[in-house]
């Protein structure tokens, strides 16, 4: 029992003293911004969009927004709103190229074309 209390106390202290470090341990690089950017770029490339400036992302409190420019001047916009799963909307000028889960794009790109999901 004494050992158990000790372990619990130790764990509680670990959790409290190192919480900022523990949160920083989360899988490196695996964040919403990266997912949105990669999925958005996948959509742009698969649609043959000629890119002048690839989307540059900023993460707000809840949303991720990435903006770029196509050759010819059309603005490129990737947006991901708060919530799970992360829903990606890709627009080039007035055209919406994709509106759906970002992870679906990444998974499709990682599988042979025509493979079942």
């Amino acid at each position: 029992m004494k050992r158990l209390v000790g372990a619990v106390l130790a764990t509680a202290t670990l959790t409290l003293t190192a919480c900022s470090q523990v949160s920083a341990l989360a899988p490196v690089g695996g964040n919403r911004e990266a997912l949105l950017r990669f999925a958005g770029n996948d959509v742009l490339v698969s649609h043959g969009v000629a890119i002048r400036t690839a989307p540059v992302c900023t993460t707000g409190q809840d949303d991720v927004v990435c903006t770029g420019e196509a050759v010819g001047g059309d603005p490129i916009r990737l947006t991901g709103a708060a919530g799970e799963p992360l829903v990606l909307v890709v627009t080039v000028g007035n055209r919406t190229l994709y509106d759906g889960p970002a992870q679906d794009v990444v998974d499709r790109a990682a599988r042979p074309s025509g493979a079942p999901s």
């Binding site: 899988p27 690089g29 695996g30 990266a34 997912l35 950017r37 990669f38 999925a39 958005g40 770029n41 996948d42 490339v45 890119i51 690839a54 992870q103 990444v106 998974d107 790109a109 990682a110």
Partner: peptide
Amino acid sequence: WIETPMMRRGSPLD
């Protein structure tokens, strides 16, 4: 799965 493996490939632009 915990490492979100497919995302780490990046996009063709990467």
